[in-house]
Amino acid sequence: MSGIWVWIEQHEGKAANVSWEAVGLARTLANNLGEPVTALVFGSNAPALAEEAIRRGADSAVACEDTTLVDYRLEPYAALLSKLVGEAKPSILLVGSTTRGIDVMGALAVDLEAGTIADVVGIEVDGGTIKATTPAYSGKLMATVVHADPGDAPRIFAIRSRAFPLPDGDAGRTGEVKMVEPVLAEDDIVTKAVSFEGTGGEISLTDAGIIVSGGRGVGGPEGYEPLRELCGVLDAALGASRASVDAGWIPYEHQVGQTGKVVAPDLYIACGISGAVQHQAGMRTSKVIVAINKDPEAPIFKLAHYGIVGDLFQVVPALTQAFKKKLG
C-alpha cells in the first residue's frame, strides 16, 4: 500500500486544468510522504497526456487508449480505474471534483469500500492522518474531514478546481509510461454516447481566472452585450444570477450560485446583481470581488472589495475602455 495516484480527466484530448492541479498537489504530498506519484490517463491522446502529467510532476504514468474510451462514459472508465487501483493499492487517490470525477470516484468507492472526500479545498498531513477541508452547507461553513480506518483501500479525495496551484511543466522531467488494456469491451457497455455539443469556445466558468457576471440589472438578453465586451478584453468567462437565467435571458450553464456553479476566480465582477445568499454561495471565495450596482444598499457591497455605485450600462463600457487603454 503505497503511492499517490492521480486520475487525469480529459475531453477531446485535452486534460482538465483541475487534473494538473491534482498532479501538483500529489507532488507536494509525495515530497512530504516519500511516496511516488502515478498519473492515470484514459481515452484520446492518452500517451501524450501521460507524458505531460510526468512533466507536471508525476513520476510515472499508466495510460489506456481505446475506442471504448474516446467519449467519456462512466462504465468503462470506472471499471478500468477500479481494476488498476484494486490491484496496485495506492495509499491515496486524487481526482478532480467535477461531474466526471465525482461519478468515477463514487463507483470506485463502492467497489473498494473506500471513503471519499469531495470538493476538497485544503489538505494537511498530520502524522498518520490526512485532514481535508471542504466547504459545507453551500459554503456557509468549512468542515474538516478524515478517512475512518481505510484498511487497505486508498484514501480518495476529489479536489475543487482552482483550489490548488496549477503546476508548470518541467520539460526535463521524464518517467515511464505503461500502456494497459481496457476492462470492458464495447458489447459490455450499456450506454452509447450519441453526440456532444460544446459551449462553442467560451471560457469555462470553473476554470476562469476572471468572471464578469450579470444579474437582473442587465434588463434583458441584449443587456449582456456590454458584459461580453468586457469579457473579451479581460479573457473572462460570463456568469449570471439565477434571476436572469430564470427570466430566460441567458442559458443555465452560466448560472453561478447554490443551484448553479460554484466558482472561485481571482476576480469576480458582479454587475446588476443584488448578492442574495444563494448567489454568494457560488462566488464568495473569489479572491477579489467587484460590485457594480446602482443601489448603494445592495448586499453585494458587503461582500465586495471594490465597488462602483452607478448604472451598469455606463460603468461597464467605461471599464472596458479603461482596460483597453491600460492593458494595451
Partner: peptide, 30 residues
C-alpha cells in the same frame, strides 16, 4: 468510511468595500 472531525463558520470578510467615486463615470472606471 469518512468522519467529520471539525466544522467551523467562515471568518467574516475583513475590511470594507472600497467604493470608487470620480467626477465622471470614466474616472471612477479608470
Amino acid at each position: 468510511k469518512v468522519k467529520w472531525v471539525e466544522i467551523e463558520s467562515l471568518p467574516p470578510r475583513e475590511g470594507e468595500c472600497q467604493i470608487l467615486e470620480g467626477e465622471t463615470v470614466e474616472e471612477a472606471a479608470g
